[in-house]
Simulated assay, not measured.
Amino acid sequence: MSKIKKILFIWPTLSKGGAEKVMLDLVSQLQINYEITILVKFHICEFSSLPKVNLVYSDKKRYNGVINKILNRVFFYISIFRLVRCTDIVISKEVIFGLIPSFIASKLFKKYFIVWNHSNLDVYPVVRNNLERKLHKFILANVDRVINVSKYAEASLFDYIGHKLDHSLVIYNHISETVFSEQIKQSSMKCSNGETVKIIIVGRLSKEKNFELALLALNDLVKLHLLDIKLIICGEGEQRSSIEAIVKQNNLEDYVILTGLVHNVIDYIQDSHILISTSNTESFGMTVIEGLACSKPVIITNTGAVEILDNGKYGYIININDKSELINKILEVINNYDIALEKARLGYLSLSRFSGSAIIRQWDNLFDEIIFASK
Rank of each mutant, 00 (worst) to 15 (best):
I269F: 03
T259K: 07
E253I: 14
L252F: 08
E307F: 11
A245S: 13
V262I: 14
V256W: 01
T287A: 09
T303V: 15
S283M: 06
I299G: 14
A245E: 12
S279R: 05
D271K: 15
I289H: 02
G304I: 13
I289W: 01
V306K: 15
V288W: 00
I266G: 00
I289E: 02
T301L: 08
E244L: 11
Y268W: 15
S241Q: 10
E253M: 13
T259D: 04
G260L: 02
I300Y: 04
G260P: 08
I308E: 02
Y255L: 07
K248A: 15
S295I: 03
I276V: 13
V288Q: 06
D254I: 01
T281G: 05
H273P: 10
S241F: 01
S295T: 14
E253P: 00
G237D: 04
S242T: 08
L258I: 12
D271I: 07
H273A: 12
N302F: 04
L258S: 08
I300H: 05
Y268K: 14
E253A: 14
S272R: 12
F284E: 01
E238K: 15
S277F: 00
N264H: 14
T287L: 04
I274C: 13
V288A: 10
L261F: 05
S241R: 10
F284C: 04
K296H: 06
I257M: 07
V306P: 01
G285D: 09
N250H: 15
E238W: 01
S277T: 09
V306M: 13
G291R: 01
G260Y: 01
V298Q: 03
Q249G: 01
N302V: 03
E238S: 15
N264T: 15
I269T: 06
S272C: 14
G260M: 02
